[in-house]
Nucleic acid binder design. Structure first.
Lengths: 317, 317
DNA sequence: ATAGATAGTTGACTTAGTCAAGTATTGGTG
DNA sequence: CACCAATACTTGACTAAGTCAACTATCTAT
């Protein structure tokens, strides 16, 4: 009878151990924070039930039992108690008389109001003792976990801003071009070298009166896109290195970047914007089309380890 | 009597809301995972107690009460139950006869063994359903939260490896040079442009038989340093763009990068390594000195918006 | 009309945990 | 040495949190 094989040390098993460590740590941390009479006169579970009633429209007992994993018997009893105290009313639903629609009374809202603030009071000190950069890291990490474990679109995705370039942004542009074009199109390192050349030229020749770079960043401060507009001649501007990180696609980042270029070019009195792209870059081409650029020239070329169709697009201003 | 001032919308209050959202989400997620008969025949609290006894040397009841926030009466009862089942023994401590040192019996270890694996079995599916990049993001986020909320030095800091360059690494090098030299020395964007030029040239002229780049990354996969070695002539190599992220300083990353260059140069039969640095870069100069480089030339120059003393260092191989 | 399923309630109980008083031991002080 | 207060843990009595099964009223499908 051979012995069972020893457990192989895989990346996943190391990652699960790190998850266990976090889980042990965080549940302990929260356990300590939530212990005691924090929600007095309500228990933690009562507070949770009241929270759901307060924040959901037409919530039923079955909703809470199903979503919350609370026992129907226990919930019924709790709701009876809340009813006795005048905090919650139950109204039979028109479409199914078995169901009770739960809502807080005015007295219920008043009694519950202090508890709404408890978690804020508990969590605030945790973050306020950290320096600003660590605060951003902490909430970013939390958003990441929520997003990944919930399988949802991140709420923070909704907010982004465009800003001018700062130290490190050109390097970021080169890095993203290197990573994303390799991952998505299999382009080789000559493309990253081209991006580095564009970045070098932009910095060396930068004339803020006629040229600009826009960096898109999320509310968290994370960079998710960029574009440059440079002067080709007194009447012609050239748009270069438009890129959007996959995590921020679908939000209008690319369109906002291109529109920023168009607005800047118009304000500076350019007559035309020109750009060079490749036919496989469908999302970028779509943005150019939608913003009014026209395809004026295309030709096959061997670049970046591929056979590609290079395209020149123009927008008359 | 004037009304109280409306709550100001500050960055911190937005961040606390994001923390609350995470907290609500995660405790709910864990609550669902931990519900039911997961640790049968033990309860969650019993499992936690057994875990502590199994993993800590000479643990006492007071230790558990203090660190764990569990009631002494309840714990005593539980331990009595474990004693009845032959899972735990209590031995009076020699130095204080009031104290009981707790340990698992052989039968206790055997009975507890399946429970040790429960959290692994519960957490594994959460991570295994994610693509590899998201897995790394998840555990990185968890490590970040643990580190920030515990106020500890990150455990992951201890391990780093060196690897050859990949797509995006050159851009990362440019980005870090741009950010760090601005932040630490006030150098202007001409330095980032120089880094971009070095990167571009490296990629375009790269000959793997004679040249290499090394990227230092932590166990988490995060890049924290780099160096390039390029061929200057058949007998002379040139070391370029050594940089170490502040978060990984003090670990020997810089020294490892330089030693990798030296070893490579020796293996390739170069006679000498040369490099150009600036006198203000004290940490780098310290590493060069310690690894045997000699200062052979220095001169004042106006670069990067500063008056600097450029230095050439050499190592005979 | 009937049967099975569903929404919630109630009775009886178990499990998880609290609080206070008690016993044995230790350390400090006069 | 004696005494007292504090400490480590136990025990009695109890409350709080929650479970399970049987029940009532309502709905849906056949």
């Amino acid at each position: 009878m051979p012995k069972p094989a020893a457990r192989k040390t895989s990346p996943v098993s190391g990652q699960v151990e790190r998850m266990r460590r976090f889980n042990r740590f965080y549940t302990h941390k929260i356990g300590l924070l939530e212990g005691g009479k924090l929600y007095d006169p309500f228990s933690l579970t009562e507070t949770r039930v009241l929270y759901e009633i307060a924040h959901r429209d037409r919530v039923t007992a079955s909703d809470l039992v199903r979503d919350f994993g609370i026992d129907a018997g226990y919930l019924s009893r709790m709701l009876r108690g809340f009813g006795k105290q005048g905090l919650v009313v139950r109204k039979a639903a028109k479409e199914d008389a078995r169901q009770s629609i739960l809502s807080l009374t005015v007295a219920g809202r008043k009694a519950f109001a202090p508890q709404e603030d408890v978690s804020r009071r508990v969590l605030s000190p945790l973050i306020e003792r950290l320096p600003a950069t660590d605060r951003a890291r902490l909430v970013e990490a939390m958003d990441t976990i929520t997003q990944l474990l919930s399988g949802e679109t991140p709420a923070v995705k909704a907010g982004f801003t465009l800003r001018p370039h700062r130290p490190g942004d050109i390097g970021w542009m080169v890095q993203k071009h290197g990573e994303l074009y390799t991952a998505e199109y299999g382009w080789d390192s000559t493309f990253e070298a081209l991006a580095a050349e564009v970045g070098m030229q932009f910095l060396r020749d930068f004339d803020p009166k006629w040229e600009n770079a826009w960096i898109a960043e999320l509310d968290s401060g994370e960079r998710v896109g960029c574009v440059f507009l440079i002067r080709k001649s007194t009447t012609v501007a050239k748009l270069r290195v438009l890129i959007v990180d996959p995590k921020a696609r679908g939000l209008g980042v690319g369109k906002a970047l291109v529109n920023a270029c168009i607005d800047f070019a118009r304000a500076k009195g350019y007559r035309k914007i020109t750009l060079w792209t490749n036919s496989v870059l469908l999302a970028a081409r779509g943005i150019y089309e939608k913003t009014g650029f026209k395809l004026v020239h295309s030709e096959t070329h061997q670049s970046f380890g591929q056979t590609l169709v290079g395209e020149t697009w123009e927008l008359r201003l």
